[in-house]
Deep mutational scan, measured.
Amino acid sequence: DRIFMTRTEALEFLLKAHQTAVDKIGHPSHKQTPADHAAIEALDRLLLDVRARRVDQFQINASAAQIIVTD
């Protein structure tokens, strides 16, 4: 599946995904793992790359739809 978004929409989408990941590892019942921190770092890099126009398409994980940034 493909989803087309403007750059602004894609950045909002990534910010929400980032916040969800941060909230998940901050929850008291969740045991933090290196994979959790790696996922947040990957989202940080992706946010910067989309914002800087170095990336025009991405996929958060293998089961997610491919996001295509349109400007």
Score class of each variant (00 low, 15 high):
62 A>G: 15
6 T>V: 02
4 F>G: 02
40 I>D: 01
62 A>W: 06
13 F>V: 05
69 V>D: 03
33 T>Q: 10
15 L>I: 10
22 V>D: 02
10 A>Q: 00
23 D>A: 14
57 Q>Y: 11
47 L>V: 07
11 L>T: 03
43 L>Q: 02
7 R>A: 03
40 I>E: 02
39 A>Q: 12
66 Q>F: 15
16 K>P: 00
26 G>C: 10
34 P>V: 09
11 L>Q: 02
12 E>I: 12
19 Q>F: 05
61 N>W: 11
34 P>S: 09
43 L>N: 00
44 D>V: 15
68 I>C: 05
70 T>Y: 12
53 R>Y: 11
60 I>D: 04
23 D>M: 05
24 K>D: 05
60 I>M: 08
61 N>P: 11
64 A>G: 14
1 D>F: 02
45 R>M: 07
41 E>K: 13
6 T>F: 02
57 Q>G: 06
35 A>S: 10
39 A>M: 15
58 F>S: 00
42 A>C: 07
32 Q>S: 14
5 M>Q: 01
9 E>M: 08
33 T>I: 06
68 I>D: 02
66 Q>W: 15
69 V>Y: 02
22 V>T: 10
33 T>V: 08
41 E>W: 05
8 T>D: 13
68 I>Q: 05
66 Q>T: 13
49 D>N: 07
26 G>P: 04
64 A>T: 13
36 D>V: 05
47 L>H: 03
8 T>C: 07
18 H>W: 15
71 D>S: 06
68 I>S: 04
17 A>N: 03
60 I>S: 03
51 R>V: 08
11 L>C: 05
70 T>L: 14
13 F>K: 02
44 D>G: 15
27 H>V: 09
53 R>G: 15
27 H>T: 09
12 E>W: 11
60 I>V: 08
6 T>W: 02
54 R>Q: 05
57 Q>S: 14
38 A>F: 11
60 I>N: 01
71 D>L: 06
47 L>P: 00
57 Q>I: 14
14 L>A: 00
67 I>Y: 08
15 L>H: 09
49 D>E: 13
47 L>F: 09
31 K>Y: 10
48 L>Q: 15
29 S>T: 11
60 I>Q: 02
8 T>I: 13
53 R>E: 10
4 F>M: 06
47 L>I: 15
